[in-house]
Amino acid sequence: MKTDLEYLKGLMNVFLESSQPFIEISDLKNAGFDITTPQGLHHYSILIEKEYVSAFNLSRGNPEKLGYSYSLSSIDSVDYALVRLTAEGIEFAQMLQEPSIYEKLKGLSQSPLNVMKDVGSDLLKAFLKKKLDL
């Protein structure tokens, strides 16, 4: 499955828009991002693999601590699981929120996420330098 940058941006925006440091998985579902659908599973798993999300106890990389429950026949969400964006996740999410950077990154949407993050970081630095007349 290909990564949909618009979907990823919206998913991460749920975290950014929260007034709390942690959200429940149900908050993602209520915002239209069900992490058990194929699209949701793909994109939320990317955030887990890149360690852009952590659990209430700040553990990373373990889907069972980050909102998933597995059985022999299904993958379900644990709606009450508390999760947050890590510092790296916040940086990437904020890059995606800047319209000029997002538009440029859309052209790289099939590139590895690390490449998009590195390019986005460079674009953000250039954007801020220009904005501050440096």
Rank of each mutant, 00 (worst) to 15 (best):
Q110A: 00
L8P: 09
S121E: 04
D34E: 08
D133F: 06
G10R: 13
V83N: 02
H42S: 09
I23A: 02
I48R: 10
Q94E: 11
K131C: 02
Q110L: 12
F15Y: 11
I35F: 10
S100C: 06
F33H: 09
T37Q: 00
L82K: 15
M116P: 01
S73A: 10
I35M: 11
Y70E: 07
E24F: 11
L113I: 15
L105Y: 13
G10I: 06
M95V: 06
K9D: 01
I90Y: 12
I46Y: 00
I35D: 06
L134Q: 07
V119P: 06
Y44T: 03
Y80V: 02
D122Q: 13
L113S: 10
F92V: 08
K9N: 04
L47E: 05
N13A: 12
V14L: 06
L58H: 08
S26T: 05
L5R: 03
S100F: 09
Q20C: 04
R60W: 02
K125S: 05
L128N: 11
G40M: 04
L82Q: 12
H42M: 14
F127R: 13
I23S: 01
K65N: 07
R84M: 11
V14P: 08
E88L: 15
L113R: 10
N30M: 10
L113Q: 10
S74M: 03
L16Q: 00
Y52M: 11
K29I: 02
F92W: 12
D4S: 07
A126F: 12
S54A: 14
I46G: 00
V119F: 08
L47N: 04
K50E: 10
L58I: 00
F127P: 01
T86F: 01
V119M: 08
G61F: 07
S26Y: 04
P99K: 12
S54G: 02
N57F: 14
E51T: 06
I101D: 13
Y7E: 04
S19F: 02
K29L: 06
D122G: 08
F22R: 09
F15P: 03
G32K: 14
A93H: 12
P21N: 10
M12D: 03
L47S: 02
L47P: 05
N30I: 02
Q110K: 14
L132V: 10
L47K: 00
F22V: 03
E17L: 07
P21S: 15
E24W: 10
S100L: 14
E103P: 00
M116T: 01
N62S: 08
T36I: 11
R60S: 05
R84A: 09
Q20V: 00
Y68G: 00
E49F: 10
F127T: 12
F22Y: 15
P38E: 06
L41R: 15
A126R: 14
L108I: 04
